[in-house]
């Protein structure tokens, strides 16, 4: 039982770290493209708001559930 819990903790930690890395890289790339190539500033601004609002909410929820697993 303890082994399974340890396995879950390690797995969740790796998954969480991987997700953070992917999030940072993709968000940076997307932001670059929107700023550099977006031709409608108002629409790009709105898209950014939607993207970051939902992404950060999901990131917070993921972090909370990850911490729940640890504790």
């Amino acid at each position: 039982m303890e082994n399974i819990k340890e396995f879950i903790t390690i797995g969740a930690t790796l998954a969480f770290l991987g997700l953070i890395i992917v999030f940072v890289v993709l968000t940076t790339v997307l932001n670059y493209h929107w700023n550099r190539y977006g031709i409608e500033p108002e629409r790009v601004k709105k898209v950014k708001q939607i993207y970051f609002t939902v992404a950060i909410t999901l990131l917070i929820l993921t972090s909370i559930t990850y911490l729940n697993i640890l504790w």
Partner: peptide
């Protein structure tokens, strides 16, 4: 394992959300 499932679910949704915007950006540009 419900906590793990919920963690997996939120992580999955975040990943899908990012991919949705990659696809949208490709369309928009």
């Amino acid at each position: 394992y419900s906590e793990l499932a919920i963690f997996g679910l939120f992580a999955w949704w975040l990943f899908i959300w990012m991919i949705i915007f990659v696809v949208w950006t490709n369309y928009y540009l």
